[in-house]
Computed example of a mutant assay.
Amino acid sequence: MASKIEVKDLLEAGVHFGHLTRKWNPNMSPYIYMERNGIHVINLYKTVAKLDEANEALKKIAASGRKILFVATKKQAKDIVADKVSKVNMPYITERWPGGMLTNFVTIRKAVKKMAAIDRMKKDGTFNTLSKKERLQVDRLRAKLEKNLGSIADMTRLPGAIFIVDTMREHIAVKEAQKLNIPIFAMVDTNSDPRPIDYVIPANDDAGKSIEAIMTEVTQAVADGLSERKNDKQEEKEAKATTEAEAPAAKAAAPVEAKEAAEPKKEAPAPKAEKAEAPVEEKVEEAPVKAKAEPKAEKADDLTKIEGAGPKAAEALVNKGIDTFAKLAKADPEKIKEILTEASSRMAHLDPTSWPKQAQMAADGKWDELKEWQDNAKGGVE
Rank of each mutant, 00 (worst) to 15 (best):
I164W: 10
R229V: 02
L303W: 04
P264K: 10
E263P: 00
D351M: 08
A177T: 04
P91G: 10
I42K: 04
G225D: 08
E228F: 08
P91C: 12
A241R: 10
A72C: 04
A261D: 09
P271Y: 11
A161K: 05
A116G: 02
I5P: 13
R96C: 11
T47L: 09
K275H: 00
K50R: 15
D9R: 14
V174L: 10
Q360C: 04
K50G: 08
H40G: 08
T21V: 12
V7N: 14
M361C: 00
K275E: 03
A293H: 03
K299I: 02
A250T: 08
F325Q: 07
A57Q: 12
K292T: 05
D368H: 07
E236Y: 07
T353S: 15
Q234W: 06
E56L: 14
I80K: 06
E238C: 00
I108V: 13
K144L: 09
A223T: 10
I201F: 02
T167E: 03
K272F: 10
A161R: 00
A313V: 14
S131A: 15
K114Y: 03
A309P: 05
E228G: 03
N55D: 13
D323P: 02
K312Y: 03
W367E: 12
K312S: 14
K8W: 10
K84G: 07
E372P: 00
I152T: 12
G365K: 13
W367C: 00
D224E: 15
K272E: 13
D198V: 11
V138P: 00
N27H: 11
L158Q: 15
V381F: 13
L44F: 13
V41G: 02
K275R: 00
A278K: 14
A173P: 10
T216F: 04
H19P: 03
D52V: 10
G380C: 04
T129Q: 15
V41K: 11
T129I: 07
F127K: 01
R169K: 09
S345Y: 09
D232Y: 06
K366A: 07
K60Y: 04
N148D: 07
E35R: 13
K75D: 11
G308C: 06
L145K: 08
K113L: 02
K237M: 07
K292Y: 01
A239E: 05
I118V: 12
Y199A: 10
K330S: 04
Y199K: 06
G380V: 09
K292P: 02
A331V: 05
V106Y: 01
A278V: 07
V165H: 02
A241C: 00
E146T: 00
A247S: 04
F185S: 01
K59P: 02
L102W: 08
A221R: 06
R229T: 02
L69Q: 05
A116I: 03
K327M: 05
I322L: 09
V218N: 06
D9T: 15
W367I: 01
T219P: 05
L51A: 11
Q137A: 11
F163A: 01
D323G: 10
I80E: 09
Y45V: 08
R109K: 11
K75E: 15
D205A: 01
